[in-house]
Design a binder for these strands. Structure first.
Lengths: 242, 242, 242, 242
DNA sequence: TATGAATGAGGGTTCATTCAT
DNA sequence: GATGAATGAACCCTCATTCAT
């Protein structure tokens, strides 16, 4: 009121409204995460947002729509965060690892909410637009994957869907394990995932990778294969000799 | 009481009771899977089981206990099925694949219930005995894994937890994808999983594997390595030539 | 069956039935006393009586009728006990005191049930025959009272109803106090009641009391009155002298 | 918020709320009195109060708390009424009679509720604070009694508890009789009670009564004693003459 | 006659949603 | 817009009563 910058009261108004809406969403997010959809009470959300119960209904038609918006906001933010966390020019494998680390951290931080999201997913009809933000997030992986294929880092395109399932599936289970045990071994999980990706997905053909060609990588791979071959031969010879 | 002919009716009696209990459990299973815990209505379960509402309470103290028993029964049956599906004398990798195929099939069949289970898992205190059947099922993987390590098929023991997360995580996500798209490409998923396991987990050193040395395995491995080597060379040559 | 005294199986049968009925009534009595009418559960009564739930309904149409019978049995037994406790040839005042002591003891012993009875009384229509046993018990007092009047021990007949209310009312409240405080001062209560009865009810005209004429009583009364009179005069004189 | 005219609507608001709460309490009072605790239905109370069922729970956590408040309100009002009905400067005996008349009237008016109260009392643990209003009411008698003793009107202090039991016990039974017979002889009951109190409790020694010495009292006492003496003499003479 | 499994009506309580202020 | 009191439908659970065995 006495604000000298009151030239733009509209902006102030709008900001107020947005702040209120944001408070409601944040409160709802926490309540949903802690209590699940049915366990969450509109009254509790209102209390957490320092808002009257009726006020919520000025912004959202009902509990389900509130949930929908919370979910959308969460996954959108997750997508933004992921995009920000990915080094733009790095090899795809490194981008994947960056995404993995980001994803694991976020999932562990908000594990209740994530689990709760999948609970929601099942109730929805197949073509519900409200799941779009989730799909958009998932596609972050797909983009990196395709880039990796395009760059010749990854072998086949046909398997994207499987690698995606493996990627998110492993991370979700790893997160669950970490949360349940109240431990944190992100690095160990990362190492394992990288091992798997490199062993099964990464293409050793690095020739035309436009940016960095790691000579060491090649050497390592060759050395490893030689060792394996030797073992193989040793495994065969005794047999044939006998 | 001392009537010798009372055995038969008693048996019939018992059978009836067990049939009724089984009907209730099955009805509850479906209702929980479709509606979630809070969404499930005791009246609906009773109707599905062709039983009066009050009857359920002759068998289970309350909704929570009913849930507990349903979950226990489901996971126990899953464990039995898994154990039966695993070929006893095969290499660990084959056992894992058998488990994977079995798991994927079951999860797809009962996807709602599985998802619902994990929703339940989070509400439970850490040491709830009611989760034991789930833990027992998970250990089926661990047993195979350890056998693989003991037999020299798999490399390190330290990573069991990660491989387990990867295994179940990928399968659950694959199942979700299949259910959501209403498609079925179990074989494709199996192939991918096997590829990953062989590439990242399987030990090529078969020499001292105490039990069976499958000649075919050897042949496959050799073929795979040759293909990889060729790729390697092709990757290197253009480079060196340049 | 192999009982050699099986000549009178009918008697044995009847005895068995009566024993069972008695067990049910006793069990119901305890359950009603402890839990009240609504709190009492037929299942609990059956358990206490070592009888199947359905069996109760072979003897009593429903819970209300069972209650009715329990109440009737209780008050009838109370009446018998009271009649037995009253010395037949003693002065009415002594008979009243005997009744009082008996009543107080029983009421304290079975306080829950008594209180529960009056709770029942209100639900009943005015002319319910099921209250007859209670009315019969109450009349024990009336009979003694009338005898006291007839014998010239008590003054007027018109006040019976009031003395009866005072008698039972005081005793019930005394019992309540004793039960609530978990104390027992029956003698003190008796002394007070006797004091009140003698002071307000008993006729000092003992002349024609057929049995015992307590000279001492007379002397005491006279002495007391003289003292009172003296006090009175002393109270008046100073006043008048002033 | 800072609207100065907001006071009036607030007051109206508050009044409305209090009216509603009062309506609920009154409705609950009637329902409890008529049906007992278990028999009372929240739906019926709501209907009687012209309020939705859920509304009751805005004011009281549950049925038990509603009962508690009803009981408290009733006994508090009873206490206020009693204190108002007692003439402050009169002799203790007259105060007791005023209390008795008030009590009897109220108990008859609300007999069901009173009986219902004692039914409740037994279910409560010994030290339940919710019974305090009842205790406070009972102490009204005690206060008068003690005053009577202090003023020299009543003889011993030790018997307060007995006189209290007699007082309330007789009145409750008298009320029950009146209610059951649908008659009203309050005066007769009063006369009897006064007779008993004067005969057993009142102290004729008025000499040192510090405050008021009522000439009429003296006259009455003298008259009574003379009558008693005459009776005494008549009782003795026939004897001595014989 | 005795049993006890089955029934299902009924009631206390919760909470999303509405609407008068 | 904002409030929060009011609403009432919905649901879990109890338990008196029945009836097939």
């Amino acid at each position: 009121m006495a604000d000298p910058s009151s030239e733009k009261p509209t902006t102030t108004q709008r900001e107020k409204l947005e702040a209120k809406e944001s408070a409601i969403l944040a409160a709802a997010h926490r309540e949903f995460a802690e209590m699940g959809f049915d366990g969450a009470k509109m009254a509790a959300i209102a209390r957490r947002a320092s808002v009257a119960e009726g006020t919520i209904y000025l912004y959202y038609r009902n509990k389900a729509e509130l949930l929908e918006r919370v979910v959308a906001r969460f996954w959108s933010a997750l997508t933004e965060g992921a995009l920000a966390a990915i080094p733009e020019q790095s090899p795809a494998i490194e981008q994947l690892m960056a995404l993995a680390r980001y994803h694991l951290t976020e999932v562990v931080n908000d594990f209740d909410f994530i689990g709760f999201t999948s609970q929601v997913r099942q109730k929805k009809p197949r073509d519900d637009r409200s799941l779009d933000p989730i799909r958009r997030y998932v596609r972050v992986f797909d983009a990196i994957y395709r880039r990796g294929v395009d760059r010749g880092e990854f072998s086949a395109n046909t398997e994207c869907r499987h690698w995606r399932d493996l990627f998110y599936g492993q991370l979700e289970y790893a997160a669950r394990t970490m949360v349940l045990r109240n431990s944190n071994d992100t690095d160990s999980v990362m190492a394992h995932l990288e091992h798997v990706l490199r062993a099964g997905l990464a293409q050793p053909r690095l020739a035309d990778s436009p940016q960095q060609t790691h000579e060491e990588d090649l050497g390592q791979l060759l050395a490893a294969m030689k060792r394996d071959l030797e073992r193989l031969e040793q495994a065969i010879q005794p047999k044939t000799s006998t």
